[in-house]
Every structure is written in C-alpha cells, then in structure tokens.
C-alpha cells in the first residue's frame, strides 16, 4: 500500500504527471460543462413565458377611422399605430427614392393595403413612443411621426428619415379579416 501511494505521488513529477494533469483537466471540464448546463434553466426562466407568448394577437375595428385619422392600439404591451392615410400621404410614401433611405424599404413592402399603414409605435432608437397620432401632434419634417426623445423623424410609411434612430418603425404581422377589421399578431 505504502509503496503504491509513494509511487503515485512520485509519478506526479515524472512521466506519470501527464495522467494526473489529464484527470484534473477532465474533471474541471466536466464540472464547467455541468455548471453551464445547470445554469441554463435559471437564465431561460427570465425569457418570455408561455402566457406572455400566448396573448399575442389583437383584433381592431377600423370602421370608425376616417381618412386622415389614426388609432393607437395596445399589442404585446406596446402601442401599434394604425393610420388611415390620405392620397397625398400615400403618394409621398411611394414617391421616395428608396436608395436614399437609411433603412431602404419600399412603401409596398411595408403595407398590405395602400390606404392603411400599421406600425409598432416604438422609436427604434431607444424605445420612446413617437408623436403624430393626434391631430395636434407634431409630425416631423416628413409628415409621419416625430420622436421627441432625441429627435427622430419618420415619414408617412414609418421609415426613418432624420435623427439618431437606425431603423424604420417595425411592421407587425397583421391580416385584414374584412375591409374594416384587422388582426394584429
């Protein structure tokens, strides 16, 4: 017995050392992987839960929204802007030279029906709600929306035209259930 113990301890300095090093490393690596895997449920528990994911569509009645008017609805805790655009606004949105935009997108790609623009009302800079839904609100230099927090201007298609925001206002997934009813989400 004593001699075995002696030879192992001694081996650490000689050629047997690599075996002990290997065991240390392998144990350490297993421990690290195990701890990492065990931590995942803790981390993932902080992601959106099933019931948050479930309440994710809203139906909106468009009948009361006349041309030139707008409606704000809440979807997934965020404001969604629905605007019934005038012919002038539609034309302005379509006539833009897409190549000049910071986040190039045609108006067609951003709308289901030209008369209606539906966007998430969250500034893509740092998340404020832009102004422009109420008739008395400032709408910025491009007639769409204006974010007062750090001065981002959006056009009538919700595209970023001026200011610090990097992206266009997001377009949520939505479908027209009928001419006067839309389902968001």
């Amino acid at each position: 017995m004593a001699s075995t113990v002696h030879s192992t301890a001694h081996g650490a300095h000689g050629d047997g050392g690599t075996r002990r090093d290997f065991l240390y490393l392998a144990t350490g690596a297993m421990g690290a992987i195990g701890a990492g895997l065990a931590a995942w449920p803790l981390v993932d528990s902080m992601n959106p839960s099933a019931e948050v994911l479930a309440v994710s569509s809203t139906e909106v009645d468009l009948a009361p929204v006349a041309v030139g008017m707008a409606l704000t609805v809440k979807w997934r805790g965020k404001p969604v802007f629905v605007r019934h655009r005038t012919d002038k606004e539609i034309k302005e949105a379509e006539d833009v030279n897409v190549a000049e935009l910071r986040d190039p997108q045609t108006d067609k790609a951003r709308t289901e029906k030209p008369g209606w623009i539906v966007v998430v009302g969250i500034c893509t800079h740092l998340g404020c709600v832009p102004l422009g839904q109420k008739p008395t609100d400032p709408r910025g230099d491009y007639g769409g929306w204006f974010c007062p927090c750090h001065g981002s201007h959006y056009d009538t298609s919700g595209r970023i035209r001026k200011g610090p925001a990097p992206k266009n206002l997001a377009v949520p997934a939505y479908t027209f259930l009928s001419d006067s009813k839309v389902k968001i989400g």
Binding site: V43, N47, R76, G77, G127
Partner: peptide
Amino acid sequence: NLFSAFPLVGEPIVTWLWGGFSVD
C-alpha cells in the same frame, strides 16, 4: 433599450431582460 445597440445579440438580450416584448 441601450442593449439593443449591440448587433445580433442585442434584441434577444433586451427581450430576456424584459421577460416579454416591452417593459411590463
């Protein structure tokens, strides 16, 4: 939202911080 500035990982990090799709 400051964390959304980081490319690729930004958006998932913000959703994770919120535990949803907005501060709630």
